[in-house]
Design a protein around this nucleic acid. Sequence first.
DNA 1: GCCGTTTTCGGCCCGACTGTTTTCAGTCG
Length: 574
Amino acid sequence: MDKGEISQVLGEIATLLELKGENPFKIRAYQSGQRALDLLEEDLGTLIETERLGSIKGFGKALTEKVTALYRDEPLPFYDNLKASVGPGLVEMLEIPGLGAKKIKKLHRELGVDSIEDLTRVCQSGEAAQLPGFGPKSVGRILSGIRNREAYSKRHLWWAAKEASRPIVEGLRALPEVDRGKVAGSLRRLVETVGDLDFLAASDRPGPVMDWFVSQSGVKEVTARGGSKSSVRFEDGMQADLRVVPPDQFIFALHHFTGSKDHNVAMRGRALSLGYSLSEWGLRRDDRKSMSVAPVQDESDLFSLLGLPCIPPELREGRGELEAAESGQLPHLVQREDLRGAFHNHTHASDGAHSLEDMVRAAQDLGWEYLGIADHSKASFQANGLNEARVQKQIEQIRRLNASGMFSCHVFAGIECDILRDGSLDLEDATLQMLDYVVVSVHSSFTLSEEEMTRRIIRAVEHPCTTMLGHLTGRLLLRREPYAVNVEKVIDAAVANHVIIEINSHPQRLDMDWRHWRKAAAKGLLTSVNPDAHSVSGLAYVAAGINACRKGWLTPESVFNTWPLPRVREYLEG
DNA sequence: GCCGTTTTCGGCCCGACTGTTTTCAGTCG
């Protein structure tokens, strides 16, 4: 097994022990072993060969033996027995918000619940509500958790879908029978979550292409295998379709299967008004005699036949993009290369994995001019948040680093300050004033009413030290719904107080949602594409944030961290 | 299960919130 697989096994062991009601500290030992393994700088194989794994913090006798056995693919009865003694249904139930190991254990012991189906049944029959510790509210919460889970399980994060699609696209393009290969659908439109993966290939010989597709590694089931379309389901539950079309139809099919539906409706309407008929097969005159009016090489040819400039896939949502294209008002969308830095990044001072220097080096390697450090504040105790004294120490450390000239990348000293329940901030004003900038975020009391939550956040936005608002709605895509908050009112308050609203670029957040940005930017609202990086690799999440910007029609001018250093400095000092 | 030691056991990250209770257990961050 490689390091990544072993890390997963350690995490799985921790979960299984939890469900067995084991000593919580033993569980934590496996979790910290997993973390230590992930952060290992030296090669795992070398450490095992030279018998030095046990000297690394987090690996005692037991974990060293188990990791070694896994690495050498030797049997590990402890793990096998553990898996056998806890049903997979119980592990699944942990995904339901409000259900932890203890409640699951109780349901299993008292009512024999072994699966989500059982759970639904005992919740609906009223049996669950009879158990001590369970009442009507918790049962209602469990049932709504199950419903969400069903809806969620059909979709995947864009980030994961992109990773899964890459080898398939590359493989398709490498086939001798294939002229062109591309992803289509919501993945191509850069939507934050994706249902099925849609692939499209141009070829005159679809047979071998289909054969190759359905025999991909990881394919669990072939749900369709036809002459022009095949569908498969992968082991992880992701579904993928491949369509193979003749080369001269490729662009029309690509446009059609990229969608969205609303965009396609608008495009077909426009074609009709110009005397054409547009479909996935081609563009033809209304007299139905000629198929393609002109050969098209790429999508811009297609748009140009309809008298339009090329509309990028991410704007094709039927939200006024045709009108904008027609009047020459398509935005000059911000790109990944426009970024010159990022704010809202964590170090190991709070719950990040890497040191200040590591983070700055990584930012510099990305070619960035500046990096903002915003560790948690003290109310986020579980994240080892900083109190006033530790903030001051970190500011001094950052000032020294800047003065040392060790890096060309400038470091801004910031904080991710908790917004307390009443909307006040978690640190003394005197401390906040010493910082270069302040990100304010909600990390607690998610269940306030919309009115209270809106008032709370607006109070924080109005604080004179606030520079940016972090993850506005607290949503975790496919996992947790946003908390109730009036987004319009917060946007207006942010504009009035010259506060930036971040696009938290963690692939599971992408918050504030892109659907609000076009209007918000028109009101003068600025954003910052913030990776919320908890390690050096987390800086890469800005790519997902840029997707959200582009879907929100944003130009570089509206994105604070595309600004050059002197201008950023001036803004933060002003 | 790990760690550290005033060295082989005792402590390990804690507090808020919720829903269930009637003084607290479980979950979450």
